[in-house]
Design a binder for these strands. Structure first.
Ligand SMILES: [Mn+2]
Ligand SMILES: [Mn+2]
Ligand SMILES: [Zn+2]
Ligand SMILES: [Zn+2]
Lengths: 142, 142
DNA sequence: AAATACTTTAAAACTATTCTAAACTATTGA
DNA sequence: TCAATAGTTTAGAATAGTTTTAAAGTATTT
Protein backbone atom coordinates (compact mmCIF):
# COMPACT_ATOMS: atom_id res chain seq x y z
CA UNK A 1 0.00 0.00 0.00
CA UNK A 2 1.44 3.36 -0.95
CA UNK A 3 1.68 6.06 1.67
CA UNK A 4 -1.02 8.13 -0.02
CA UNK A 5 -3.39 5.18 0.13
CA UNK A 6 -2.58 4.62 3.77
CA UNK A 7 -3.28 8.26 4.60
CA UNK A 8 -6.50 8.14 2.60
CA UNK A 9 -7.61 5.08 4.52
CA UNK A 10 -6.89 6.70 7.88
CA UNK A 11 -8.71 9.87 6.91
CA UNK A 12 -11.72 8.02 5.55
CA UNK A 13 -11.92 5.84 8.66
CA UNK A 14 -11.82 9.01 10.75
CA UNK A 15 -14.77 10.36 8.78
CA UNK A 16 -12.75 12.82 6.72
CA UNK A 17 -12.19 13.09 2.99
CA UNK A 18 -8.59 13.01 1.81
CA UNK A 19 -7.98 16.62 0.86
CA UNK A 20 -4.66 18.20 -0.06
CA UNK A 21 -4.36 19.85 3.35
CA UNK A 22 -5.23 16.74 5.32
CA UNK A 23 -2.80 14.60 3.33
CA UNK A 24 -0.05 17.06 4.19
CA UNK A 25 -0.87 16.69 7.85
CA UNK A 26 -0.75 12.90 7.45
CA UNK A 27 2.62 13.17 5.77
CA UNK A 28 4.06 14.83 8.85
CA UNK A 29 2.27 12.52 11.27
CA UNK A 30 2.64 9.12 9.64
CA UNK A 31 5.46 9.14 7.06
CA UNK A 32 8.26 8.31 9.49
CA UNK A 33 8.84 4.89 10.97
CA UNK A 34 9.61 6.66 14.24
CA UNK A 35 6.75 7.85 16.39
CA UNK A 36 6.89 11.21 18.12
CA UNK A 37 5.19 13.57 20.53
CA UNK A 38 3.95 16.98 19.52
CA UNK A 39 1.84 19.98 20.35
CA UNK A 40 -0.46 21.58 17.78
CA UNK A 41 2.01 24.42 17.64
CA UNK A 42 4.92 22.07 16.88
CA UNK A 43 2.93 20.37 14.18
CA UNK A 44 1.88 23.59 12.52
CA UNK A 45 5.49 24.78 12.48
CA UNK A 46 6.70 21.52 10.95
CA UNK A 47 4.08 21.73 8.23
CA UNK A 48 5.00 25.31 7.44
CA UNK A 49 8.76 24.86 7.56
CA UNK A 50 9.38 21.37 6.20
CA UNK A 51 6.59 21.23 3.66
CA UNK A 52 6.48 24.99 3.07
CA UNK A 53 2.74 24.75 3.15
CA UNK A 54 0.37 27.03 5.00
CA UNK A 55 -2.61 25.24 6.52
CA UNK A 56 -5.21 26.99 8.62
CA UNK A 57 -5.02 26.29 12.33
CA UNK A 58 -8.68 25.28 12.36
CA UNK A 59 -7.97 22.52 9.86
CA UNK A 60 -5.06 21.25 11.90
CA UNK A 61 -7.17 21.18 15.07
CA UNK A 62 -10.09 19.47 13.35
CA UNK A 63 -7.93 16.82 11.74
CA UNK A 64 -5.99 16.06 14.92
CA UNK A 65 -9.23 15.72 16.86
CA UNK A 66 -10.74 13.38 14.30
CA UNK A 67 -7.63 11.19 14.44
CA UNK A 68 -7.66 11.22 18.21
CA UNK A 69 -11.33 10.24 18.32
CA UNK A 70 -10.71 7.38 15.90
CA UNK A 71 -7.63 6.28 17.83
CA UNK A 72 -4.93 7.12 15.29
CA UNK A 73 -3.41 9.54 17.76
CA UNK A 74 -3.30 9.64 21.55
CA UNK A 75 -3.41 12.65 23.80
CA UNK A 76 -1.07 12.61 26.79
CA UNK A 77 -2.18 14.05 30.14
CA UNK A 78 0.27 16.60 31.51
CA UNK A 79 -0.42 19.69 33.48
CA UNK A 80 0.43 22.14 30.83
CA UNK A 81 -1.10 25.07 29.04
CA UNK A 82 -0.84 23.09 25.79
CA UNK A 83 -2.08 19.68 24.68
CA UNK A 84 0.48 17.00 23.86
CA UNK A 85 -0.23 14.31 21.29
CA UNK A 86 1.52 11.05 20.47
CA UNK A 87 1.74 9.19 17.16
CA UNK A 88 2.62 6.08 19.18
CA UNK A 89 -0.79 4.60 19.88
CA UNK A 90 0.45 1.40 21.51
CA UNK A 91 -0.01 0.99 25.25
CA UNK A 92 2.94 2.75 26.82
CA UNK A 93 3.85 5.24 29.50
CA UNK A 94 5.89 8.43 29.70
CA UNK A 95 8.63 10.32 31.38
CA UNK A 96 8.19 14.08 31.29
CA UNK A 97 11.39 16.07 31.34
CA UNK A 98 10.36 19.21 33.15
CA UNK A 99 13.52 21.06 32.18
CA UNK A 100 12.81 20.71 28.47
CA UNK A 101 9.01 20.20 28.64
CA UNK A 102 9.54 17.07 26.62
CA UNK A 103 7.94 13.63 26.68
CA UNK A 104 10.03 10.47 26.56
CA UNK A 105 8.51 7.06 25.88
CA UNK A 106 8.79 4.49 28.62
CA UNK A 107 8.85 1.01 27.13
CA UNK A 108 6.87 -1.92 28.50
CA UNK A 109 10.12 -3.48 29.68
CA UNK A 110 11.06 -0.34 31.59
CA UNK A 111 8.07 -0.25 33.88
CA UNK A 112 5.97 -2.91 35.59
CA UNK A 113 2.37 -2.93 34.46
CA UNK A 114 0.06 -1.22 36.92
CA UNK A 115 -2.17 -3.54 38.89
CA UNK A 116 -5.41 -1.94 40.06
CA UNK A 117 -7.18 -3.90 42.81
CA UNK A 118 -10.28 -1.79 43.06
CA UNK A 119 -13.11 -1.25 40.67
CA UNK A 120 -15.59 1.58 40.58
CA UNK A 121 -19.18 0.29 40.54
CA UNK A 122 -20.80 0.63 37.13
CA UNK A 123 -17.61 1.97 35.59
CA UNK A 124 -15.13 0.42 33.23
CA UNK A 125 -11.44 1.25 33.08
CA UNK A 126 -10.78 3.16 29.87
CA UNK A 127 -7.06 3.69 30.31
CA UNK A 128 -4.27 3.65 32.84
CA UNK A 129 -1.84 6.50 32.38
CA UNK A 130 1.48 6.79 34.17
CA UNK A 131 3.53 9.97 34.05
CA UNK A 132 6.97 10.04 35.62
CA UNK A 133 8.13 13.60 36.07
CA UNK A 134 11.88 14.04 35.98
CA UNK A 135 14.09 17.07 36.31
CA UNK A 136 17.75 17.93 36.59
CA UNK A 137 19.39 16.87 39.88
CA UNK A 138 20.71 20.31 40.65
CA UNK A 139 17.39 22.05 40.35
CA UNK A 140 16.64 25.42 41.87
CA UNK A 141 14.81 23.86 44.79
CA UNK A 142 13.50 27.02 46.54
CA UNK B 1 -3.00 24.61 68.06
CA UNK B 2 -6.12 26.45 67.05
CA UNK B 3 -7.23 26.39 63.46
CA UNK B 4 -6.42 30.05 62.99
CA UNK B 5 -2.89 29.43 64.19
CA UNK B 6 -2.55 26.48 61.86
CA UNK B 7 -3.69 28.55 58.90
CA UNK B 8 -1.37 31.37 59.89
CA UNK B 9 1.52 28.95 60.02
CA UNK B 10 0.75 27.53 56.59
CA UNK B 11 0.40 30.97 55.08
CA UNK B 12 3.60 32.27 56.67
CA UNK B 13 5.51 29.19 55.53
CA UNK B 14 4.20 29.80 52.03
CA UNK B 15 5.54 33.32 52.16
CA UNK B 16 2.17 34.99 52.68
CA UNK B 17 0.83 37.10 55.49
CA UNK B 18 -2.35 35.90 57.17
CA UNK B 19 -4.92 38.31 55.82
CA UNK B 20 -8.69 38.05 56.21
CA UNK B 21 -9.12 36.83 52.63
CA UNK B 22 -6.38 34.23 52.84
CA UNK B 23 -7.67 32.88 56.13
CA UNK B 24 -11.07 32.40 54.53
CA UNK B 25 -9.45 30.39 51.75
CA UNK B 26 -7.65 28.30 54.38
CA UNK B 27 -10.91 27.69 56.17
CA UNK B 28 -12.37 26.08 53.08
CA UNK B 29 -9.20 24.17 52.26
CA UNK B 30 -8.06 22.92 55.64
CA UNK B 31 -10.90 23.00 58.16
CA UNK B 32 -12.32 19.59 57.33
CA UNK B 33 -10.73 16.31 58.34
CA UNK B 34 -11.65 15.01 54.90
CA UNK B 35 -9.47 15.93 51.96
CA UNK B 36 -10.99 16.86 48.63
CA UNK B 37 -10.33 17.71 45.00
CA UNK B 38 -11.27 21.03 43.48
CA UNK B 39 -10.89 23.45 40.62
CA UNK B 40 -10.34 27.15 41.19
CA UNK B 41 -13.90 27.65 40.06
CA UNK B 42 -15.23 25.14 42.62
CA UNK B 43 -13.25 26.79 45.36
CA UNK B 44 -14.39 30.27 44.50
CA UNK B 45 -18.00 29.12 44.51
CA UNK B 46 -17.62 27.43 47.90
CA UNK B 47 -16.10 30.58 49.38
CA UNK B 48 -18.89 32.74 48.01
CA UNK B 49 -21.74 30.41 48.91
CA UNK B 50 -20.69 28.78 52.18
CA UNK B 51 -18.86 31.71 53.69
CA UNK B 52 -20.84 34.40 51.83
CA UNK B 53 -17.59 36.16 51.21
CA UNK B 54 -16.44 37.67 47.94
CA UNK B 55 -12.74 37.24 47.29
CA UNK B 56 -11.08 38.39 44.12
CA UNK B 57 -10.11 35.64 41.69
CA UNK B 58 -6.55 36.95 41.58
CA UNK B 59 -6.21 36.42 45.32
CA UNK B 60 -7.53 32.88 45.05
CA UNK B 61 -5.11 32.06 42.24
CA UNK B 62 -2.16 33.59 44.03
CA UNK B 63 -2.88 31.82 47.30
CA UNK B 64 -3.45 28.44 45.67
CA UNK B 65 -0.21 28.77 43.74
CA UNK B 66 1.74 29.68 46.84
CA UNK B 67 0.34 26.64 48.67
CA UNK B 68 1.09 24.40 45.72
CA UNK B 69 4.65 25.68 45.51
CA UNK B 70 5.16 25.10 49.23
CA UNK B 71 3.57 21.65 49.01
CA UNK B 72 0.39 22.27 50.99
CA UNK B 73 -1.64 21.42 47.89
CA UNK B 74 -1.03 19.15 44.95
CA UNK B 75 -2.07 19.67 41.37
CA UNK B 76 -3.40 16.62 39.53
CA UNK B 77 -2.58 16.06 35.86
CA UNK B 78 -5.66 15.50 33.75
CA UNK B 79 -6.31 16.55 30.22
CA UNK B 80 -8.82 19.19 30.96
CA UNK B 81 -9.38 22.82 30.27
CA UNK B 82 -9.20 23.46 34.02
CA UNK B 83 -6.62 22.67 36.69
CA UNK B 84 -7.53 20.23 39.44
CA UNK B 85 -6.06 20.53 42.91
CA UNK B 86 -5.97 18.15 45.85
CA UNK B 87 -5.84 18.89 49.57
CA UNK B 88 -4.57 15.34 50.07
CA UNK B 89 -0.82 15.81 49.75
CA UNK B 90 0.14 12.25 50.65
CA UNK B 91 1.48 9.99 47.92
CA UNK B 92 -1.58 8.55 46.22
CA UNK B 93 -3.13 7.96 42.83
CA UNK B 94 -6.44 8.72 41.15
CA UNK B 95 -9.38 7.41 39.26
CA UNK B 96 -10.98 9.98 36.97
CA UNK B 97 -14.68 9.49 36.35
CA UNK B 98 -15.10 10.84 32.85
CA UNK B 99 -18.88 10.91 33.12
CA UNK B 100 -18.81 13.30 36.05
CA UNK B 101 -15.36 14.86 35.49
CA UNK B 102 -14.57 13.91 39.05
CA UNK B 103 -11.45 12.63 40.76
CA UNK B 104 -11.57 9.68 43.17
CA UNK B 105 -8.67 8.83 45.44
CA UNK B 106 -7.05 5.46 44.93
CA UNK B 107 -5.58 4.22 48.20
CA UNK B 108 -2.17 2.64 48.54
CA UNK B 109 -3.82 -0.69 49.17
CA UNK B 110 -5.85 -0.44 45.98
CA UNK B 111 -2.96 -0.20 43.55
CA UNK B 112 0.49 -1.75 43.44
CA UNK B 113 3.27 0.79 43.63
CA UNK B 114 4.79 1.55 40.25
CA UNK B 115 8.24 0.13 39.66
CA UNK B 116 10.33 2.07 37.15
CA UNK B 117 13.36 0.15 35.87
CA UNK B 118 14.90 2.89 33.79
CA UNK B 119 16.51 6.12 34.77
CA UNK B 120 17.09 9.18 32.64
CA UNK B 121 20.73 10.31 32.76
CA UNK B 122 21.24 13.40 34.89
CA UNK B 123 17.60 13.48 35.89
CA UNK B 124 15.88 12.69 39.13
CA UNK B 125 12.34 11.35 39.47
CA UNK B 126 10.17 14.10 40.95
CA UNK B 127 6.88 12.22 41.00
CA UNK B 128 5.08 9.20 39.62
CA UNK B 129 1.48 9.95 38.73
CA UNK B 130 -1.07 7.31 37.83
CA UNK B 131 -4.46 8.24 36.41
CA UNK B 132 -7.04 5.54 35.82
CA UNK B 133 -9.76 6.84 33.54
CA UNK B 134 -13.12 5.21 34.08
CA UNK B 135 -16.48 5.70 32.43
CA UNK B 136 -19.91 4.15 32.42
CA UNK B 137 -20.11 0.68 30.85
CA UNK B 138 -22.90 1.63 28.50
CA UNK B 139 -21.15 4.65 27.06
CA UNK B 140 -22.08 6.20 23.76
CA UNK B 141 -19.28 4.42 21.96
CA UNK B 142 -19.82 6.00 18.51
C1' DA C 1 -24.43 22.29 -15.57
C1' DA C 2 -26.96 23.11 -11.54
C1' DA C 3 -27.76 21.67 -7.10
C1' DT C 4 -25.93 19.87 -3.12
C1' DA C 5 -22.51 18.59 0.24
C1' DC C 6 -18.20 19.14 2.21
C1' DT C 7 -13.92 21.92 3.20
C1' DT C 8 -10.81 25.64 4.10
C1' DT C 9 -9.93 29.82 5.94
C1' DA C 10 -9.39 34.21 8.54
C1' DA C 11 -11.26 36.22 11.96
C1' DA C 12 -14.06 36.34 16.00
C1' DA C 13 -15.35 34.21 20.20
C1' DC C 14 -14.37 31.72 24.22
C1' DT C 15 -12.26 30.67 28.61
C1' DA C 16 -8.89 29.59 32.09
C1' DT C 17 -5.24 31.93 33.76
C1' DT C 18 -1.99 35.71 34.56
C1' DC C 19 -0.85 40.48 34.76
C1' DT C 20 -1.52 45.40 35.89
C1' DA C 21 -2.12 49.40 38.23
C1' DA C 22 -4.54 51.80 41.49
C1' DA C 23 -6.79 51.90 45.95
C1' DC C 24 -6.32 49.92 50.43
C1' DT C 25 -4.10 48.08 54.69
C1' DA C 26 -0.45 46.91 57.78
C1' DT C 27 4.11 47.68 59.50
C1' DT C 28 8.13 50.36 60.58
C1' DG C 29 10.83 53.73 62.71
C1' DA C 30 11.78 58.58 63.75
C1' DT D 1 2.35 59.57 66.78
C1' DC D 2 2.18 59.54 62.13
C1' DA D 3 4.47 59.72 57.84
C1' DA D 4 7.04 56.65 55.00
C1' DT D 5 7.28 52.19 53.32
C1' DA D 6 6.02 47.55 52.21
C1' DG D 7 2.64 44.35 51.22
C1' DT D 8 -2.30 43.24 49.64
C1' DT D 9 -6.66 43.22 47.28
C1' DT D 10 -9.21 44.16 43.53
C1' DA D 11 -11.47 44.95 39.00
C1' DG D 12 -10.41 44.93 34.83
C1' DA D 13 -7.15 44.18 30.97
C1' DA D 14 -4.14 41.11 28.71
C1' DT D 15 -2.73 36.59 27.20
C1' DA D 16 -2.85 32.28 24.85
C1' DG D 17 -4.59 27.86 23.52
C1' DT D 18 -8.57 26.26 21.55
C1' DT D 19 -13.15 26.31 19.35
C1' DT D 20 -16.65 28.44 16.62
C1' DT D 21 -18.41 31.09 12.81
C1' DA D 22 -19.56 32.35 8.40
C1' DA D 23 -18.24 33.14 3.94
C1' DA D 24 -15.68 31.69 -0.03
C1' DG D 25 -13.80 27.66 -2.30
C1' DT D 26 -13.95 22.77 -3.94
C1' DA D 27 -15.85 18.26 -4.88
C1' DT D 28 -19.68 15.20 -5.75
C1' DT D 29 -24.19 13.98 -7.31
C1' DT D 30 -28.16 14.12 -10.23
MN1 LIG E 1 -4.37 25.19 32.23
MN1 LIG F 1 -5.97 23.23 26.93
ZN1 LIG G 1 4.66 8.20 23.71
ZN1 LIG H 1 -6.48 12.82 45.67
Amino acid sequence: MTNINLYTKKLRESGLRPTKQRLKICEVLFSSEKTFHFTINDLTKIIEEKLSEKISLATVYNTIHAFKKKGYLKEISINSDKSYFDTNITDHQHFFDEDKSQLIDCGDDEIDSVNVKRNITGKKIKSIEVLIRVASDNQNQN
